Amino acid sequence: MNSKTNQKINQVTEITLIVGIDLAKHKHYACSIDERGRVLHSVVELLLPRMTQAKRP
């Protein structure tokens, strides 16, 4: 690993909360884990309003 990667890994502490988000076309999911990789909250479906594309003239 390069030193930049090691620096990023060293920034993770006991108070760090890591949230992984899976963005898909229609459904989105999130999961939170602690600094050791333990799941703190199971997968949650994110309910986001659909964005509409602006019509071109």
Rank of each mutant, 00 (worst) to 15 (best):
V43K: 02
E14T: 12
S42V: 01
V19S: 11
A54K: 14
I15S: 12
Q7M: 12
R36Q: 13
V43Q: 01
K25Y: 02
Q53D: 10
Q53G: 09
T52N: 09
D22Y: 06
R38N: 14
N6Q: 11
I21V: 15
A30P: 03
G20Y: 07
S32T: 15
I15V: 03
T5Y: 06
Q11R: 15
E35V: 07
A54S: 12
V43Y: 00
N10W: 04
G37K: 09
M51E: 08
E45I: 11
C31R: 13
P57Q: 11
H28K: 08
G37M: 07
N2H: 14
I33N: 07
L47H: 12
V19K: 07
N2A: 09
V44E: 11
R50K: 15
V39P: 05
A24D: 05
I9R: 10
V12P: 04
L23T: 02
S32R: 12
G20W: 02
K8F: 02
Q7F: 14
K4R: 10
L23E: 01
T13V: 14
V19I: 15
G37Q: 02
L40I: 12
K55C: 03
N2P: 05
H41L: 08
S42Y: 02
G20D: 04
R38D: 08
N6Y: 08
I33R: 13
A54M: 12
I21F: 02
H41E: 13
E45N: 06
K25S: 09
M1G: 13
L46C: 06
